[in-house]
Design a protein around this nucleic acid. Sequence first.
DNA 1: CGGAGTATTGAAACCTATCAACAATTGTGG
DNA 2: CCACAATTGTTGATAGGTTTCAATACTCCG
Lengths: 233, 233
Amino acid sequence: MLVNAAVARSTQSFPPAVGRGLPAGDMAPLDRLGTLVDVARDATLFYEGDLADHLYRVVSGAIRLCKVLPDGRRQLAAFFLPGDLVGLDLGSSHSFAAEAITDSVVLKLPRQRVETLVGENPRLGRALLSLAVERLVAAQSQMVLLGRKNATERLASFLLGLIERTGQAASDRPTLTLTMTRADIADYLGLTIETVSRTFARLKQLNAIALPHPQRVVVRDRELLEELAEEAD
Amino acid sequence: MLVNAAVARSTQSFPPAVGRGLPAGDMAPLDRLGTLVDVARDATLFYEGDLADHLYRVVSGAIRLCKVLPDGRRQLAAFFLPGDLVGLDLGSSHSFAAEAITDSVVLKLPRQRVETLVGENPRLGRALLSLAVERLVAAQSQMVLLGRKNATERLASFLLGLIERTGQAASDRPTLTLTMTRADIADYLGLTIETVSRTFARLKQLNAIALPHPQRVVVRDRELLEELAEEAD
DNA sequence: CGGAGTATTGAAACCTATCAACAATTGTGG
DNA sequence: CCACAATTGTTGATAGGTTTCAATACTCCG
């Protein structure tokens, strides 16, 4: 499951998507420590209930944060892409599990080292606070989606969010590669896989998107997608 | 709307419910600055889109954090009780509005002062980070509720959460006073007022609660309520 | 090429929303 | 303190979107 990867330390820079809000380079000190770890598809970074004694930075691949209810219902709270930090709830017990959606590489940072670093480097502390707040705002916006939006609005919002996060925002006809399955999307949007599938069909029929392949989405009409998403912003 | 209150500074200590997780007294420095402000029922602390240039601490009353979609659908992201901090997303634009549920008093802290204080006092920064993470975890747990739970499970979870937050946890037969209306509860749980009302009736019929008054809930069977809530924890 | 996993599509059931009427509570003024 | 009006909450009947159950198609890979 968790296998040490070829230790390619060096001063490599990770893709964006981290402190998309404010401080960018302030997170850099974190990359100086920690070990690179390979995580196979569907392997677990940490389980719900585990002590949160490590912080992870996604180097490549994709991670899902999820919880399973006693009767098997599942809800995803977030998708993490390269550059993202996983496991901010340091010190407590994880209330969600983290699993690899595809074969991934993560940088694993011991909690203690992180805290030492934060103690020495106030800017890093500030950057982490900004990041946590940013995540909180995103979570609240997902609460609006889950609480009040219908299936079409949910999927449209999801696709628009992916466009933002993957840096396709500038493109006039953004193309997305969905690393996650319909089940993951469904559990993230609070729907079933069947409804997700039907809703993809609806978006296709409305000419908002094309679906040359189940995993490949071509946005044909971004404005329409935005109307369908009913974003308040 | 926003009226300056009698300036009762002093070293009064606010009710708990703040850093319920880890650092408690580390938040204290915040109370040294800022002005007390009266907020009338249904008045607005800040609107969605406003620049977040103040942090608020609830002294008395209750605050709701909410967003309204273009067509009028509303979703609440949080209820804030005495001791809670409102407006953590300092520096950006508020993505949610904050409104008083009842006549309330809040301590209003200018952003700049807060940031200065954080710069001088690393423990405060750490406390704010813990708080933000705690909020994030709560938001994620609310995502499970909104995405996967039915009406009964939602209301049961909501009542149990209130018991925790209001310090009734120890009581064998906790009694809650609901300061918010059915509409607020509905918009927090992603339901309609009718469904909330019917679900209260169901909980009453199951003898999980008694409802001597629409605003007063007596928990008659906490274990049953916990079973009904289907909490994964 | 064939089998496992994944995605799509159809029909029926179910839970919640909607529309509507009524009851209870609160607040106000006489 | 009562009466009325306005607000808030409850309850009923129906409609509707999503889920569930089921069958079929597609994709990936050995």
